[in-house]
Design a protein around this nucleic acid. Structure first.
Lengths: 229, 229
DNA sequence: ACACCAACGAGAGCAGCGCTCTGCAACGAC
DNA sequence: GTCGTTGCAGAGCGCTGCTCTCGTTGGTGT
């Protein structure tokens, strides 16, 4: 099998696959995942519904592709904004990550709902999803790791019963700072998206008016909770 | 119109309405909201699909009723468990509320996904939903309010820029403790459900093994964040 | 150069969905 | 007893995800 010749076929396939995914993402952003219809997606591309199944075996697979893309998009934003604040102190960098995630969520609410809103109860997420979903967490981990040892950085308290777990987690994540910190980091990672999710789903409506200031304050407190100063 | 005679009609109507909702809840708990089908629900009751529309004008209305019920079920659990810990200190009571919510979520994952998973992007939630959704938050607020003034209870720090907002929020909620506390409480309320949501959606899989101990630790730290000791 | 085969896309069709409309039966009000 | 409201069944509309079949076409091995 000649590589160049098959390359043409394969390239066409990749292009069509990407075109489908792009159109699907367009409709997702416009209407939300519930309204996303395979027939409408391929109709826009001048194809017929059955042809789509040559590229995505099911609607779920197409959605999974969108989930991975969304996680990567969010992750890239967080990484980029953190990198832009590389020179600043750890708290600034921490806040930069949070605000990147929050802004991304407010800009792409349907994508955010797709990846954080609808958990797959029972059914475990496929591996590539899991990997992509970890990116923001890894950025946060990097910020805390870099701050480790800096003057003023403190260790959050940790109950004795959780110490073995903390040691194991730190080892699994190859996380240098003391095990106290890794537990706090994982918890705060989850709490951070609780904040974003509540704001996005309208639970702050009529309650919190100054969203920006409130967010800044809350995330500063979360930075404190992982020991950053 | 005689009240007794119409009472019979009305009672029958209420019963059928409740039967539909119960069967719908059964299927929701079993399969999740996506799989919930009006035809299947009413078929189980020996009715035909079109008859359902005499009771719920649309699938969305039926789901909304389930959302309200789920919120109230979660709220009742939280209230009951908190009441059972009424004698204990504020931290104990705080933890009781959290663990009630967490247990409820783990027991009813599809209901939890229905009310916290799928936000209504754009479209604001109807008022009764909003009211029911506030119950857990109100319980948490009660715990903090009761602890206010107790020895050792501290005020979380608050930046100057957020003080007016904090004062307004405390006034809106008729919350006696200092405004520092109300901001922390709202933030922590959201963060708490971030923890539950992450655990439920499997994001702790392969990362946190000792879920119970980890939860206890995290929620203790959240209690500290609102000033409880 | 040719024959072959895998990939492709169109079309028809299936079962299911939410929802509407129509017609009929039963019940309550007067 | 008559009449109007209410409840339910059935047919049906347009849509969905998905499957199967069938020509066509383009790259491959000889």
């Amino acid at each position: 099998m000649g590589n160049a010749a098959e390359g043409a076929r394969a390239r066409a396939r990749i292009e069509v696959t990407a075109a489908i995914k792009n159109e699907a993402r367009r409709q997702l952003a416009a209407e939300g995942s519930a309204k996303l219809s395979l027939r409408t997606v391929v109709r826009e591309l001048g194809m017929v519904a059955s042809a789509l199944y040559r590229y995505y075996p099911s609607r779920d697979d197409l959605l999974t592709a969108l989930v991975i893309d969304a996680h990567n998009s969010l992750g890239e934003t967080a990484e980029a904004d953190e990198a832009a604040a590389a020179g600043a102190g750890p708290v600034r960098r921490w806040i930069a990550v949070y605000e990147a995630a929050r802004d991304w969520a407010l800009t792409n609410p349907h994508e955010y709902a797709l990846i954080f809103g609808t958990p797959f109860p029972g059914r475990p997420a496929p591996d590539p999803v899991f990997t992509a979903a970890a990116r923001v967490g890894l950025v946060l981990m990097g910020v805390v790791r870099d701050a480790h040892g800096s003057p003023g950085v403190i260790e959050p308290p940790l109950t004795a019963e959780l110490r073995p777990e903390a040691v194991r987690m730190a080892a699994d994540l190859a996380f240098d700072p003391p095990p106290e910190t890794v537990v706090a980091l994982v918890a705060v990672w989850a709490q951070l998206f609780g904040l974003v999710g509540f704001e996005l789903s309208g639970r702050f409506n009529g309650l919190v008016e100054e969203r920006e200031a409130f967010s800044r304050h809350a995330v500063s407190r979360l930075a404190h909770a992982v020991g950053l100063v």
